[in-house]
Amino acid sequence: MPCRSIIPELEVIRAHNISSLGLSGNLTRPSDCQSHRRFDVIDLKNTNHESVLDREIAFEFFLNSQLLGSVGNGKVAKLGTIRIKEAQKVNGIGKEIHAQHLLVLSQNQFKEIQLKAKWDGVIVWPSLFFKFRNEDDEDELIEHISVYMLDVLGFPRAKVSRILDQYDGMQSINSHLKPNGKTWFTEWYQGTNRTLQYEMYKEVS
């Protein structure tokens, strides 16, 4: 297989085997395999052989692609949307999947993981230390968050201002975005006709 040198099939599957949650990955169609690029579609099943995904994961691996966090090119994995079924959402599932991705990609000498965050991902990915490709996008998201704090959480201006002054990445404020008994930020945020989409990246090693 010409794409084996990028990442072998078994490693793609291993990147989705999460023993702590009893999840295992399998390729649902043959790889689109070229010397410079590999494309896989992966399903993630629990111990009852039920898929936990609303939509299969699309993963694209490049031998030599532009890096977003540093100058030049390198091995890059581009992750499509991960949408987990509502009933299968357990605390920390996104974090566990990401940790396994990171481990396997790191062991296969990938430099960077890239994705387009949308829906819940706009909060999940930056909370996992993904960086915004375009800092204007981060400013835009913070604008949405400030509106959410004022309108949904009912925070006074001064409190919003104080929280934003202390902003040091999404992980520093995401505790405010999933309040008990109130609409979560991502749910509220998707209440417009258009969901914004942000390009993000994270260095693997």
């Binding site: 204007d136 835009e140 258009r194 989409q197």
Partner: peptide
């Protein structure tokens, strides 16, 4: 910054049609 970008015709964002 967004305000300046809007005025100067530089503002843009990506969005997904629901």
């Amino acid at each position: 910054k967004k305000f300046l970008n809007i005025m100067n015709g530089l503002y843009k964002h990506m969005y997904v049609n629901q």
